[in-house]
Amino acid sequence: MPLLEVTDLRTSFHTRNGVYRAVDGVSFTLAKGETLGLVGESGSGKSVTCYSLMGLVPQPPGRIESGTAMFDGTDLLHCSPAQARAIRGKRLAMIFQDPMTSLNPYLRIADQLIEPLLIHEKISRPAALARGLAMLEAVGINDAAQRLQAYPHEFSGGMRQRVMIAMALITRPEILIADEPTTALDVTVQAQILELIKKLQQEFQMAVIFVTHDLGVVSGLCDRVQVMYAGRIVETADTRTLFRAPRHPYTQALQRSIPSLQPKGRDLYTIPGLPPDLSKPNAGCAFADRCAAVTDRCHATAPGLLPVSATQATACLRVQAQEI
């Protein structure tokens, strides 16, 4: 049985300008100890998917329209506030994309770091501080004891992000949702953080949902990858297959855009056109307007996410029809 099973999650935002279907029918499972990569277009709903699981979608304007997310017998989307408090922040923890706005500028690092411990574990303040210190060292902050007394603005961007990582890991969660946790980190510190996550995974069988734009990180860390476009999962496969043989035209285009694979001095390849307006209903494939392989059918019928091999599922009519 999977640790987490998300079925038909739909989250939208009701604004003056219309209803934005940010997450539009997302289903996936996560096994104990597994690392699932979530990649895709900026604005495709990766963060909103994570927020939905964490109960952090601002309501209003946000609304979870449908779906279930079963975690150890509890539906995260429809549980009581007491159930939610017992799970979130302890068994299910998240690292946020924006370290500055998710740290309280008026509180010292120490107080923010140990807050989850004080809430969820019956533990004394000195004991919590000792664990906070150890965690801060584990994420590679020097002079951690002295730095604990600092305020967030006294830390560099990467250091703040590491504080966020320490805060999420301090309760040893069963599921870690990491939304772009290493974007502000240089490659050497990034490598160190990824090693730490891997180690915790082995020790505690922690499962990870890893949202990132960095396909290199995905390829080094993740067992399986899911690609999102316009609120839907358009392709999912084990990591090797996704890199070696992406089938969905969007995944292929994404791979072509990677700068390190392109010559210097020339413009980088970009996907033509703009992502669709999520407030406009769309009968066909959301990628149709930008797709190199588009046919008339694609504008009329929305493809479902169907298996195209034992380890790969692709939401493309033409792939499913074995035309491309």
Partner: peptide, 8 residues
Amino acid sequence: ALDVSIQA
């Protein structure tokens, strides 16, 4: 903070 295509 951008995906590779928008980054490009």
